[in-house]
Nucleic acid binder design. Structure first.
Length: 581
DNA sequence: GAGTTTGAAACT
DNA sequence: CAGTTTCAAACTC
């Protein structure tokens, strides 16, 4: 029974050793990290650790809204159970009735707790108080343990890395389900379940409270967004209501943001697996992943009705098929980078507002001065004021340009691959709206001293002027933000309308493949522009801040509503400087 | 608590 | 890389 293990077998023992963090090659590893690494094979695991949303100082009122958005745009990928000291699913402490319990203890009998079978070993902690037999995962058997670690790493360098990583697309909203937070991470290797439907804890994805992803090779998977079985599992009526209310309350924001990795994922084609219907793959992807049938035809077909599903109200324009999955109507419309974009736009507005107010104040002041010294030569002062205004204008323009430039870079990151966008620091433009410090910057900006090293005593306008500026800035920003939300709502309504229409059509004419209504490239990638910024150009002298046309596809929207004012031409794309049509 | 089922890990 | 075996957790009774 006892298999040879390349590890010196010592006196059987299962005496508990303190379950403390291990020290692999001099690098201590807390139980919270599974970055167990031996000796020179140490590798960082930070990149896989969940990124917390940037914590910002309590800002003025305007910023609370932006914080919400930012929270959505930021990586929302906390571990399924953040309180868990272990990163691997199976090592999560038992959570029953929402109450975390003591860390589990292994019951290994044959592995001596020196293989990944042992959850303690796998998570890089010593066995402590476990029920294991012949345990070598303790201080007394450190050499053997170390050898086992090396052996394991030799087999799989990532053996001790967290299995659950943030989704490349990353940004799905956290969503309460049955009191727990569904995490939008995904299993690095994916599960291979065959019989459990991925709805039992046999499934690592399920256990980690995440949805199965394209990494999985499971069969008859039911662990996907919108799965009725899964919902039945998670959604008690109560929880359902909560989740739905939560979703509805945040529909304009939550459902719209960064959903590319969300819902029944758009699975990449796997080896020997076709995504399309009529797959000839021997293992039948349809059987393995019914949700995979939902290819990424953005609105290529209408969804079948989703009766009694509270989420059905936000059914997406997914192809018709057995899949019962859904997506937010706003999915794909707004990407995380768009939020940054929006923030940038708001920053521009703020700067513009400050400038305008500054101009106005200066004009008033100048008028007064002119009254008082009508006969004195005010030419010098006027010239100076003018210089200040010009300098200030250039500052603002520079800032806005920086915002535009800034947005270009993150835009790229939303593409596939290791998406670090979620963990990326916010752009200066975004930060400008989210940090108290920026208030000072703005104040200084309004005084026209930034960037000029002109630290004169007249840096700040009068106190009341400053307050007025703040008020005005907030008013502008809130107004614009409200407009954006309204537009989103409109988009959602349009899309819903379109989906409903298509659903009816599809029900009559179903199998004909994607209608290409929205796959039309000529219109499919352009119309998102202006969602946030189309008012900017008209309002300001600054060049329009174009939305970055990454994957946003409002084609379905625009197709259904060619006259909706959300459309606007894209003067250029920040990404490549070319017009996308 | 014993037995069964399940799927990851380990092995061939 | 695929198939098989081993293993321990999850699950059932």
């Amino acid at each position: 029974m006892e298999q040879s293990e390349g590890v010196s077998k010592k006196a059987p023992q299962s005496e508990p050793s303190s379950k403390r963090q291990l020290d692999f090659g001099g690098v201590s590893m807390s139980s919270g990290s599974s970055g167990v690494l031996a000796g020179s094979q140490l590798r960082p695991v930070v990149q896989q650790l969940p990124m917390k949303p940037v914590v910002v100082q309590t800002p003025p009122i305007t910023q609370s809204l932006l914080m919400q958005m930012q929270a959505q745009a930021q990586v929302s990928h906390r571990p399924a159970k953040p309180e868990s000291p272990k990163a691997r699913p199976r090592q999560n402490p038992e959570v029953k009735d929402g109450t975390p319990k003591k860390q589990k203890q292994c019951n290994c009998k044959h592995s001596r707790c020196l293989k990944l079978y042992c959850e303690c070993f796998a998570s890089g902690i010593y066995c402590d108080g476990c029920n294991c037999v012949h345990c070598h995962n303790n201080v007394e058997n450190e050499p053997a343990r170390r050898e086992a670690v090396e052996s394991t790493l030799e087999r799989n360098p990532n053996a001790f890395r967290p299995k659950i990583a943030s989704s490349p697309h990353g940004t799905r909203d956290n969503r309460e389900e049955a009191g727990e937070v569904v995490i939008l991470a995904k299993h690095n290797k994916g599960c291979h379940c065959k019989k459990s439907g991925c709805l039992k804890k046999y499934c690592e994805c399920f256990q980690a409270n995440i949805l199965c992803s394209e990494n999985c090779r499971c069969m008859d998977c039911k662990n996907y967004e919108g799965s009725e079985e899964r919902q039945a599992l998670f959604h008690g009526d109560h929880a359902n209501n909560i989740a739905f209310m939560h979703q509805a309350a945040n529909a304009a924001i939550t459902g719209a943001i960064g959903s590319s990795g969300y819902g029944p994922p758009v699975f990449k084609k796997r080896k020997g697996q076709e995504l399309f219907f009529g797959s000839t793959a021997k293992d039948s992807s349809i059987q393995r992943h019914p949700q995979f049938q939902q290819t990424n035809f953005a609105g290529g077909a209408a969804p079948s009705s989703l009766p009694s599903n509270p989420d059905s109200g936000v059914s997406n324009c997914a192809p018709v098929g057995p899949s019962k999955s859904y997506r937010s109507l706003l999915e794909g419309l707004v990407q995380p980078a768009d939020l940054k974009e929006l923030c940038s736009v708001l920053v521009v507005y703020t700067g513009e507002t400050g400038k305008i107010i500054e101009d106005r104040n200066a004009m008033e002041k100048e008028a007064e001065d002119h009254k008082e010294n009508s006969l004195t030569s005010s030419n010098q002062e006027r010239c100076r004021s003018q210089r200040e205004f010009d300098a200030e204008r250039s500052v603002i323009v520079d800032r806005s340009s920086a915002s535009q430039t800034e947005k270009v870079i993150p835009a790229e990151s939303s593409s596939d691959g290791a998406d670090v966008s979620n963990g990326r620091p916010m752009s200066p433009g975004t930060l400008a709206l989210m940090c108290d410090e920026q208030d000072t910057v703005f104040a200084a900006s309004q005084s026209g001293v930034i960037g000029h090293g002109d630290n004169t005593s007249s840096q700040l306008p009068q106190g009341e002027g400053l307050t007025e500026t703040y008020v005005e800035q907030e008013r502008i920003i809130l107004t614009k933000f409200r407009d954006c939300l309204n537009k989103l709502i409109t988009l959602g309504q349009i899309k819903e309308r379109k989906c409903s229409t298509m659903a009816q059509t599809e029900s009559e004419d179903q199998i004909d493949g994607p209608s290409n209504t929205t796959a039309n490239g000529s219109t499919g990638t352009t119309n998102h522009q202006g969602l946030f910024n189309n008012g900017v150009a008209a309002h300001s002298t600054l060049p329009p801040v174009s939305m970055v046309p990454r994957t946003i596809n409002l084609a379905s929207v625009s197709a259904a509503s060619n006259n909706n004012n959300l459309q606007s031409s894209i003067p250029y794309t920040a990404e490549n400087g070319t017009s996308k049509q």
